[in-house]
């Protein structure tokens, strides 16, 4: 009996644990699956039984508002990615390679944009941009998105930076490479996986950003999440499901690529 319970109990607990984990996964993915499925349902009112139809996706092609918003979203995300990756990598390089006064403060300054609720940051941007005449629009959304992406880029590239010491650059110097040659031929290639991961992350931060864009979008100009939000409020149709499905699969795809590159999550 004793030995029986010793062998059976852990196995039972293991089974329970796995079942629990499975339930968590169902909880996490069920609504997304429903959303995706309903985009393929014939009925406007999500009526069951399910009837397969691609008409909502076809309708998307004719929806100029959503198409313009998609174009704007991609445009801002690309510009954001380029700017945030370049200047973020520069900062990460300096923070990683040099020890100087103010370095710790600079590292701490990365956390307010991450931890302060976006509601507060977004409204504050609205106040300043409106006041100074920068105004609302795609340009101010871009300003805001870069600010939110920068800390992530600096942290992700910084982590890559920390994984190799200054010896590689010193080795290059001892072999006669100028600092510029050492940067282009040694540091940059070694940092590359981190930079690519960071740029994917920056793209996702912008592409999925709703709160900041919401406050900085003027009437008439919009990006996808803002457009989706107003569509939901107005009483949505499966068309919104269709575009939302596309959005969530794009952003999951990007993050999957990011995860593969950066191996985040402590798995080495």
């Amino acid at each position: 009996m004793q030995t029986m319970s010793h062998r059976l109990l852990p196995r039972f607990a293991d089974g329970m644990g796995r079942a629990f984990l499975a339930l968590i996964l169902v909880f996490l993915y069920l609504p997304i699956a429903v959303l995706a499925l309903m985009g393929f349902n014939e009925s406007v009112h999500y009526a069951l039984p399910f009837e397969f139809s691609t008409k909502w996706y076809e309708a998307l092609a004719g929806n100029d508002r959503l198409l313009t918003a998609s174009f704007n979203s991609v445009w801002i995300a690309v510009a954001n990615t380029v700017i945030a990756t370049v200047i973020g990598t520069m900062a990460a390089f300096a923070l990683g390679r040099f020890r100087f006064r103010g370095r710790t403060v600079m590292q701490l300054l990365l956390f307010p944009p991450i931890t302060i609720p976006w509601l507060i940051i977004g409204t504050a941007m609205l106040v300043l941009f409106f006041w100074t005449g920068v105004g609302r629009g795609l340009h101010s959304m871009l300003l805001g998105h870069v600010a939110l992406s920068l800390p992530y880029v600096i942290i992700v590239v910084g982590a890559r930076m920390a994984s190799f010491g200054p010896e590689l650059e010193e080795a290059a110097a001892s072999l006669g490479a100028t600092p510029v040659q050492a940067f282009w031929r040694v540091s940059l290639p070694v940092l590359m996986p981190g930079i690519v991961a960071a740029s994917l992350f920056a793209f996702a931060v912008s592409f999925d950003q709703f709160v900041i864009s919401y406050f900085l979008a003027p009437p008439g100009t919009s990006v996808l999440p803002v457009e989706i939000f107003s569509a939901i409020r107005k009483g949505f149709t499966p068309e919104v499901n269709a575009i939302s499905t596309i959005v969530i699969f794009v952003s999951m795809g990007i993050m999957l690529a990011f995860a593969r590159l950066s191996k985040f999550g402590g798995e080495r």
Binding site: E167, E170, S174, A177, P179
Partner: peptide
């Protein structure tokens, strides 16, 4: 360093 023409072997080889 890059103008000295001195060779170096690093602790972890680098």
């Amino acid at each position: 360093a890059h103008r000295r023409n001195i060779g170096m072997v690093f602790q972890n080889y680098a």
